[in-house]
Structures are given as structure tokens and as C-alpha cells.
């Protein structure tokens, strides 16, 4: 997975390492990087899948792959590479789930006894804020999560990478594996759909 050098520029300020370091230092640097990104990565995966366990699995797989395959790379490259791996794993999960749902529908049975694996079913379950979410921020977060889950996956990814991770268009395109033009389109549509869904008074 090769990334253009320009894509790593936004991350270069986060580190002082430019070349190879000792294994111990490299491990510490990787630990720092993953600790800094793991929670946001989990939330992205959770929003996409609607399941904590699935999200945790996807994040762990992404962390394993980064360490195993790209741990030797410079620290500046880890950010774009990690997001690319994670988004790719989310897309794979999404495809598998869709195929499984289609088969289940075709076979006319529910293997999990009502457990919701289909992302579309998960959306309906989270639209209404639960009684536990009393705080305004929690309500706002729940509403945002629900709105994000109504978006097509590509729009959801574009919005989270651009607005939350603050990647630029080129970095987002590299992470999503699509063109910069597609990123602009997905992001534009995502913002407008979310604003329509959440209304003017959110949060």
C-alpha cells in the first residue's frame, strides 16, 4: 500500500522521528500513536457497524496490520496508513454484512434470533435517544450517530475523515481509496444531509 509523500505531511508535525529508531523506541512510538488514535477509530467503526464488538474487532485488526506490515515505516506515515486500513476493513465488513443479510432474506430465516446485524436495522434502533441520555451532549451525540448511520458508507467515511480527523482532500482520498473528486462530492452531500436531518438547532 503506497502513499504519496505529500499525504503524510499533515502527520509529520506530530513526530520528531525521521528514520529508523531502535526497536524499543519504535514500539513506544507505535504505542503512543495507537493510543492517540484508537478511541476515534473505535467510534468510527462503531458508527459504521452499529456494534461495539464488531467495532472493537475491526480496530484491533487494523492495529495488528499496521504493526505487522507498516511498523517499520516512519511515524509520519502511520496516520494515513492506519486510516486506510481501517476504512478498508469497515468496507469489507459492510459488504459481508450486506451479502449475509441478502442470503438471510432469501432463505427467509433469522439465524441470530432477532439480533440485529444489518446496519439498516441498527439505524432505526438508535434514532430515538434513550432515557439514559439526559445530558445535552449525549443527546446531541446520539442524534449525530443516528444521522451518520443513515448516510451511505462512503459519505459517512468522507464526513468523519474530513470533519473529525481533519484530513485534507488528498489524504481522505488515499484513506478511502477513491478520487479526490469523489471525496468532495461525498463530503458535500454528507454535510447537507446531516444538516437537514439534525435541523438548525443542533446541537
Amino acid at each position: 500500500m503506497a502513499l504519496p509523500r505529500s499525504l503524510t505531511s499533515a502527520y509529520s508535525g506530530q513526530c520528531s522521528l525521521s528514520g529508523r529508531v531502535s526497536t524499543l523506541e519504535e514500539r513506544r512510538a507505535l504505542d503512543r500513536f495507537l493510543a492517540g488514535v484508537e478511541r476515534r477509530a473505535f467510534r468510527m467503526a462503531q458508527i459504521a457497524t452499529g456494534h461495539d464488538d464488531e467495532a472493537l474487532d475491526l480496530v484491533q485488526e487494523a492495529m495488528l496490520k499496521l504493526v505487522e506490515r507498516y511498523g517499520m515505516r516512519t511515524e509520519a506515515e502511520w496516520g494515513p496508513l492506519f486510516h486506510r486500513i481501517l476504512q478498508s476493513k469497515i468496507r469489507d465488513w459492510y459488504r459481508r454484512t450486506k451479502v449475509r443479510s441478502r442470503w438471510r432474506l432469501w432463505l427467509g430465516r433469522d439465524e441470530d434470533g432477532g439480533e440485529m446485524d444489518d446496519p439498516l436495522e441498527a439505524i432505526a434502533d438508535t434514532v430515538t435517544p434513550s432515557a439514559d441520555h439526559q445530558l445535552q451532549t449525549k443527546e446531541a451525540a446520539a442524534a449525530l450517530d443516528a444521522a451518520l448511520r443513515t448516510l451511505p458508507l462512503r459519505q459517512q467515511q468522507a464526513f468523519l475523515l474530513r470533519a473529525w480527523e481533519e484530513l485534507d482532500v488528498a489524504q481522505t482520498a488515499a484513506a478511502m481509496g477513491c478520487s479526490e473528486g469523489s471525496v468532495k462530492t461525498h463530503y458535500f452531500r454528507a454535510v447537507h444531509t446531516l444538516r437537514t436531518l439534525l435541523g438548525n438547532h443542533w446541537p
Binding site: 519504535e26 514500539r27 507505535l30 504505542d31 495507537l34 493510543a35 484508537e38 478511541r39 476515534r40 473505535f42 467510534r43 461495539d52 472493537l56 480496530v59 484491533q60 492495529m63 495488528l64 499496521l66 504493526v67 505487522e68 506490515r69 507498516y70 511498523g71 517499520m72 451532549t137 449525549k138 446531541a140 451525540a141 449525530l144 450517530d145 468523519l160 473529525w164 446541537p203
Partner: peptide
Amino acid sequence: VLDCTVQEMDQPIALRLQRGRLAALERKPR
């Protein structure tokens, strides 16, 4: 809003993430 959700993440989830990270770091770079 998204940043708030990360700061207020459930402790069990945070611990599982931490365990996952440590397990990943045990892998040797290939």
C-alpha cells in the same frame, strides 16, 4: 460533539481497546 463521545467513553470499552493495542504491539513488524 464527536470529541466529547471519545472523552466520555465507557471504561470497559477503553480497557478492551488498550488490551487490543498491547496485543497488536506484541506482533513483530514483518
